[in-house]
């Protein structure tokens, strides 16, 4: 009698330990995935247009990266006077990246705009707009 009860208790105990181990493993995986989700969320870049001017069809821009994320000109789009956005790297190929804290003078030629009034830039959620001086 005593022996069978011990065996039963052993089986139940082992099963419960197994379930506990599975639960711990699953919880550990959940915590890992949750940390990946939090870690994967990137901040939006902070892009700022300092000034803009146009001369002989060439647009001159001073642009600064005021955030902590690098900004790729491949992912930066400019809209002049509300027109169809154009990719910055299609018109500016002297550099491909605007680093945090960096200010660049960018010249855009061949855009087809003369005497524009306003330019707007958008890059991966960061936005800035300015009037031409």
């Amino acid at each position: 009698m005593g022996g069978s009860v011990s065996i039963s208790a052993l089986i139940v105990g082992t099963a419960l330990l197994g379930i506990f181990a599975l639960a711990s493993l699953s919880l550990s995986n959940s915590a890992l995935s949750a940390s990946e989700v939090v870690g994967g969320a990137t901040d939006e870049p902070e892009i700022r247009l300092i000034n803009a001017s146009e001369s002989n069809g060439v647009i001159h821009l001073n642009m600064t990266n005021a955030g902590d994320e690098t900004i790729s000109f491949d992912q930066t789009w400019l809209s002049i006077d509300g027109a169809l956005p154009i990719r910055a790297s299609d018109y500016h190929n002297q550099s491909t990246i605007l680093f945090p804290g960096e200010t660049l003078h960018i010249q855009l030629s061949g855009t087809g705009f003369t005497s524009p009034a306003r330019i707007f830039v958008a890059s991966m959620g960061g936005q800035s707009g300015i009037s031409f001086s």
Binding site: G40, E44, G82, G125
Partner: peptide, 20 residues
């Protein structure tokens, strides 16, 4: 968890000049 992960990797933003 997968839904939260997929949602966190899905994002979009306006590129049009919101003023025009």
């Amino acid at each position: 968890q997968n839904q939260a992960e997929a949602n966190s990797k899905t994002k979009a933003a306006l590129t049009s000049d919101p003023m025009q």
